[in-house]
Amino acid sequence: MVHKLYRDFVDATQKVFNLMLNISDVSEHPSEDFKCDDEVDIVVGVVGDLQGKIVYRFPVSTSLNMVNIMSGMEFNAVDVFVASAISEIANIISGNVMTTLSDSKIQCDILPPEQYKLDANDNKKYEIATNCCICTIIGKICLEIRLNRAS
């Protein structure tokens, strides 16, 4: 299950980068490769057969590059507009994974994306806990998958 979820999220992210940003060169790396001090963190809650959250960690530079490509405009700082555009991308990736899961008879819904403050003291245990670092020509993204099976 951990491997399937990891794969589904990587595939969904690759697909979104390809279709929305016309970027096909997307590779996955161990999460240790992701180092960033300045990032936009978006959390998408998951409810249903699986419960928990997906945290998308977008470095500021990656966020700005993504919005610049989509809009054809020049954004130099993360503001409400950029955070909203990036949140919607996290929503789209998560929604695509939920559709894939439903094909495997795993029924889940997602909650509206929210900006998230990483909490180093958050030590809640999750049955499914995996991270991946996705590298593209416009920067990296880290996905943190934290889910439990519904009891």
């Binding site: 697909k15 979104v16 279709l19 929305m20 919005v67 989509m70 809009s71 503001d79 409400v80 507009f81 950029v82 955070a83 909203s84 555009a85 990036i86 949140s87 919607e88 991308i89 789209i92």
Partner: peptide
């Protein structure tokens, strides 16, 4: 203004995904 900036960002991503992925 913040409401409109938030709407603009979401609309941008939504529209591109809808036309580039879902409508395709």
């Amino acid at each position: 203004e913040n409401l409109m900036q938030e709407f603009g960002g979401r609309l941008l991503s939504w529209l591109i995904n809808h036309v580039a992925a879902e409508d395709q």
